[in-house]
Write a protein that binds this DNA or RNA. Sequence first.
DNA 1: GGTCTGATCTTGGTCAGACCAGTATGCTGA
DNA 2: TCAGCATACTGGTCTGACCAAGATCAGACC
Lengths: 246, 246
Amino acid sequence: MELKRATEGEKGFEKVFAFLRERLLAGSLKPGDRLISERELATLLGVSRPIVREALRALTVLGIVEIRDRIGTVVTRPDVSVLNDFFTFALAQQADMLDDVMQARVAIECQAIRLACERANIADFERLQRALVKIGETIDEADAGGMADFDFHRAIVVASHSETLTVLHGSLAGLLTHSHRSRRELVQAFPSMKTYLIDDHRRIFEAVIARDPERADATLRKHFAIGDEYRRRAIVGDIDKTSASG
Amino acid sequence: MELKRATEGEKGFEKVFAFLRERLLAGSLKPGDRLISERELATLLGVSRPIVREALRALTVLGIVEIRDRIGTVVTRPDVSVLNDFFTFALAQQADMLDDVMQARVAIECQAIRLACERANIADFERLQRALVKIGETIDEADAGGMADFDFHRAIVVASHSETLTVLHGSLAGLLTHSHRSRRELVQAFPSMKTYLIDDHRRIFEAVIARDPERADATLRKHFAIGDEYRRRAIVGDIDKTSASG
DNA sequence: GGTCTGATCTTGGTCAGACCAGTATGCTGA
DNA sequence: TCAGCATACTGGTCTGACCAAGATCAGACC
């Protein structure tokens, strides 16, 4: 029982976690690598297997490793889902955060569009254009329209070629999915929404094509502001046609 | 169907995790609540204690609960540290992400400063001013200067009164700490850095005081751009005095 | 009666060993 | 040489146990 001094200080879980983190951060454990078996790890660090499992499980929910049944534990590439999980829990306990999350989304997208103006390539432009066309085509559809809208904004972020922005946007946007879908009622309530949606996105697209960061940012920002305004008006009671659907 | 008794199909860990997630998301488990003991949870769900511990540990690294030795497990308010952990790992495996993370930070701060212009109160102004003064006082100090710089930017984000932005900024900024500290060498190398640091921050401060979002955003953005420029120049080789320190 | 103290209960922290169910591999027999 | 089965692995889980220390409550003391 005195064997535990193998890696000193920490107790159990921390020891294993620290051990693995070290290798992960140092790079001696890279994505794709397979870890040694739980049993080996346990004896190596002088802890029991359940403890090793705790550590591995912790790394799993962090999206760092993947435990494959009867195969082994392998290092994976950090994945967005972690952030999603986190934000999901975080929001569940603070529902009023939704509006707040929107602010973060605006932040990400506005920065992304600036980068997009610099870095976007033909493929990005084409993706944006496709999304733009789709928005026009699905202007009267509920889910399809929302999805087209999302795709457009997503395309902007992707065009920024920034992994971090893309990741953050992905997790934030996921939370706002329903918010996006409520676009449906808005469109039904305000016919002017249609031209707003189409024209605004077109202007945004053009600004990116023109590679004009300032204009793109400003236009996108205005776009969000107008959307906010519509939403606000809808809440105030300017709307009464939404009672039809459940 | 799946939400109801989701606690039946899954095996072990998933069962416990799903069980707890349900309560967490439904709100029947709120921050501050104490969970039932591990043993009870185990018998309740028909699994062994080690499995329960895995689930609890998973929630712990997600920052959802906190396991207190010999006290029990309590629900906590989601914490930033999760994101920190994640980004730390993510960055370790993709070091080139650092520059990318900076983009996200710029995104957050620029949005935050806009909100700050609208929402900042006297206390926020005072905090900003204190930070500004500190920057002037510590202009020649290494760590203290970096910290003052950080505090100032932090104060901006706090003044936005946006929980989400604050959380995101916290996790991102943490990663860029060393980057911040490298300010030290830059100051030594470029005397002009001093006036840049002081004047820029003052201008930013004034824009917030004036509650002018556009100007604040633009000024802050320019501030970052200039910082980038200095860093770029330092890399290029315009600098040779840094060999003194390790 | 009220307060202090200590035994006991409870809680998390951990361990050891065991069994299951598939995978991977190697050895054996065709 | 190659197919097939035994076996040694892997993760997945359970059982029962021990430890240390906070929480609790009864009994002793003031």
